[in-house]
């Protein structure tokens, strides 16, 4: 097994698998099929693949029409186009009538890299999370992306599946028990809880090891589903640990961090710090450089955790 792999490849592999057994699965793309990897599905199932060209808005509404007729469309493009570009179509044609469309955005987050801020979707989760009826999935590695795709196909209702561009570390802890709406406890600990989503799972695990050297046992709670949020797991963590650090490759506004903070402050207030993109646009660079530059690393989680644990509020 490689040590790194693309999440979009996990998606593409699952699609081919689904295409074999499910004649109702159709895939649409908007002239980025080579990048999203839906070209793999096209190769295996050409009669059920539709390239809409560079028209993301039409793409989502055509998908809505197909869903009305009982097909399960995977409407695929870059995350920035699937959400901010086609926001009205996602809201009014898919979320509002609760149609069984799977909207898939690859190249999510700042690690999209060289294309720069215009193509780095760091607000997509916030936007989609705010829409009623939507389920939001953000898997953390190749295998979890594969499982999330299979689960999305079985689930009846609109789903936003957010994937990345780069090759990200394979995290064996993610590979069991994917269930929509369920968080995964990747590591046990009772001093603090690190909540991760997407590719930050691996950073959260590295951070937990580092925190152990400082004498703290961190629980790592991974959320491949951001909506609906696994509030049971959160409540348990709030009772059993003293503090929270959230980590996501997304703006600190509107993503996992705010979802967790919102739930906790209403139900079991706990000290919390957010690791994420701090309300700024990104810039061009290699994905890994940008994760460093925008504070999305294990070290950033550790710094926030230590500052929180050593502050008066948590002592």
């Amino acid at each position: 097994m490689p040590s790194r792999q693309q999440t979009r490849k996990g998606y593409a592999d699952a699609l081919i698998e689904l295409g074999r057994t499910r004649p109702d699965i159709v895939v649409l793309d908007a002239d980025v099929a080579k990048a999203t990897k839906t070209c793999d599905f096209e190769r295996h199932h050409p009669s059920r693949f539709f390239n809409c060209g560079a028209q993301e808005q039409n793409l989502l509404c055509v998908a809505a029409g197909l869903a009305l007729e009982g097909f399960i469309p995977f409407a695929t493009t870059f995350a920035i186009f699937a959400t901010t570009r086609a926001a009205d179509q996602l809201r009014n044609s898919i979320a509002y009538p609760k149609l069984n469309v799977k909207v898939v955005g690859t190249h999510g987050g700042i690690s999209t890299g060289g294309d720069g801020a215009s193509h780095q979707a760091c607000e997509d989760i916030a936007m989609v999370r705010a829409l009623p009826n939507m389920t939001v999935l953000v898997p953390g590695d190749y295998e979890e992306a594969r499982q999330a795709t299979l689960a999305a196909a079985l689930y009846v209702g609109p789903v936003y599946l957010r994937l990345g561009r780069d090759s990200y570390p394979i995290v064996p802890e993610l590979h069991e028990g994917f269930e929509i709406g369920r968080a995964k406890c990747l590591r046990k600990g009772n001093d603090l809880t690190i909540c991760t989503t997407g590719i930050m799972a691996s950073e959260g695990l590295v951070a937990a090891v580092e925190l152990e050297r400082h004498g703290y046992q961190a629980r790592v709670l991974h959320f491949p589903t951001i909506k609906p949020l696994d509030t049971d797991a959160l409540l348990l963590a709030a009772r059993e640990t003293r503090a929270f650090v959230t980590a996501e490759e997304h703006s600190i506004i509107g993503g996992l961090g705010e979802a967790v903070a919102g739930f906790l402050s209403e139900n079991h207030p706990a000290p919390l710090r957010r690791v994420g993109v701090r309300d700024v646009f990104g810039q061009s660079g290699h994905g890994n450089e940008l994760l460093d530059l925008y504070g999305l690393r294990a070290g950033d989680i550790v710094a926030q955790a230590l500052s929180l644990l050593q502050s008066r509020a948590v002592a």
Binding site: S47, Q57, L60, V62, G65, E69, D88, N92
Partner: peptide, 24 residues
């Protein structure tokens, strides 16, 4: 047969319905 509202969406949705008919 379809939800519509903000302008410009419905013709695309109709395309989806027509494509589905063609597939079947």
């Amino acid at each position: 047969d379809a939800s519509t509202g903000t302008l410009g969406l419905g013709l695309s949705t109709a395309c989806g319905l027509a494509l589905a008919a063609k597939l079947r």
